[in-house]
Amino acid sequence: MRTIDTVRGCCVLLWLATVALTAQALPGQGTQKTVKFPEYDRQTGRLKSLLSGDTATPGAEGEVVVTGVRLETYSYVQGRPIVDLIIEAPACHFNLRTRVASSAQRMRAFRADGAATLEGRGFEWRQRSSLLVIHHDVSSVLLSGFTLSTAERQK
């Protein structure tokens, strides 16, 4: 009976480990599904941004090709995280070492409340420094600013 319980426990642990591994795309592995690459503030430990994708395929030199890209940046109001800007693109290259995402394809960014949208072709997102660069054909529609207004932050 103890042997059966031990085997059952090992199976559960193995299953949990499998689930945890498939949530992260690691170099040298095949295509992973539902990937997430978070970036945390080193001083506060807060989540600064989260790059997620439908799939991630390992490429050359520490890069992965992410499809179904969605990037979220976060602001904090009284300690609570609020989605600030959302960036979407069909695919991008993401360097696991430098934490830079780039793509030559069209992209779209918008504020979570829809107050501002931004479109362009070819972009680079530097996750550590939180810098977004759009290379061509930039068009933005503003009902408000790009980032949360001060009034919103102080709610």
């Binding site: 600030d84 977004l132 660069v133 759009i134 930039v138 068009s139 933005s140 529609v141 009902l143 980032t147």
Partner: peptide
């Protein structure tokens, strides 16, 4: 949308740092 501001350019940088 009618009161929106539309900005177009060749290139764009947004620094969240």
């Amino acid at each position: 949308f009618h009161n929106a501001t539309i900005i177009t350019a060749d290139e764009f940088d947004l620094d969240f740092g």
